[in-house]
Design a protein around this nucleic acid. Sequence first.
DNA 1: GTGATCTGTAAACTAGTCTGACAATCTTAG
DNA 2: CTAAGATTGTCAGACTAGTTTACAGATCAC
Lengths: 217, 217
Amino acid sequence: MSARTPYAVAARELLRDTLFDAARHELERRAWSEVTMADVAAAAGVSRQTLYKEFGSRDEFAQAFVLREADGFIGAVEGALDAHLEDPRAALTAAFGLFLTAAAGDPLIRAAIRGGGEMLPFVTTQGQTLVEGAAERLRWAIATRWPQAAEHDVALLAECVVRLAISYATLPVAPAGMTASSIGELLGPFIDRALKLDAMEIGPAAAREVTPAAAPA
Amino acid sequence: MSARTPYAVAARELLRDTLFDAARHELERRAWSEVTMADVAAAAGVSRQTLYKEFGSRDEFAQAFVLREADGFIGAVEGALDAHLEDPRAALTAAFGLFLTAAAGDPLIRAAIRGGGEMLPFVTTQGQTLVEGAAERLRWAIATRWPQAAEHDVALLAECVVRLAISYATLPVAPAGMTASSIGELLGPFIDRALKLDAMEIGPAAAREVTPAAAPA
DNA sequence: GTGATCTGTAAACTAGTCTGACAATCTTAG
DNA sequence: CTAAGATTGTCAGACTAGTTTACAGATCAC
């Protein structure tokens, strides 16, 4: 795989990764508002200009950074899904619980929540990219595992789950497991109908009583 | 770890890795004499000049490539050592067997042996760098796991094992396991005396801190 | 306000890579 | 054995990515 990636592409990816890792490293000791672009660049062993060339602005960089962090979480979530391929409802509950547990333990998220919320805009008001990106990937994760599900249902589920995940991660009200099983209860019926392997006839336009509107987190 | 590696260094390493991987990829379908430098460069997505700048000549590149391949093997060998920390003799036998098995199954080594031996010089007559490099790393691997052993004994053992490994890999005469236990018999007495943890009068210190976890790299 | 710091942009400079070309060497066909 | 073709190793010039220095505007501390 790495052999088939041309150097130029890999080098660019490496640059971004190095910058992200540098940012994470800086964020482990102080808040985002205390970290300057110069700090990030220096920590990555790169000039400030290079950083600005790769990411146009400070906000753009923060956005991309948050997106990459989210990507890491989704990787873990996919593992949880794989552990419950036969039971979609359990898969969601497990994945959601794992995500919340990981999020609660992640030093970056802890800092982001406690640190005056200076980074919160990137996952909420400015979070369109994040929600879209995460939903896209979750959509793919679900679709490949339960291919019989209707595209529309998968899209709806993915986006709502992502929004709920962000909401509960930034504002936890109960232990991860408890929240997760609540969500499992809430979305269970929908999931059973949409993803169930059983040979039930799933009419896409069937009764859709509970259509949770895209509630902003 | 990757965060603490400055970009410039990582980029250089990436370039070398990309070139090595490209070479391996090429070598999986034809022999080294059939692979041109242009092929390697192209497969890595890099110009021929860049290749020549990083490695002065074709031979130098081949040398470095062989060295890196060997490094991969030693990584596996270290794993085998860790599985027998309490019994150095068994550790050597297991490691040697694992190496020979892996070597026998490795498409590159198979091709190198059968392909008219065009690459053999790099592990034999031209193989000084390889032997020294591999011995150095094996020496380190042993010394960190059995720190009570005398430096001289470790160095002697490491170099001979490396040479034997190369010899048997390039000219196998029996199944890997059989050869490995023969080597175990041959070097066993020396190992028992040099590395044995038992309270014999080895070394200046009878005080031995049993380090159970030699951090797997 | 004043000074200090940081962002975002611009310019000139440096290092690394690419392209195309070349002589020298090696291979192969005839 | 010779001629044609391919490959190695090297070079010069163009191009690109990254560095350095500098500066205007915004923000914050005092």
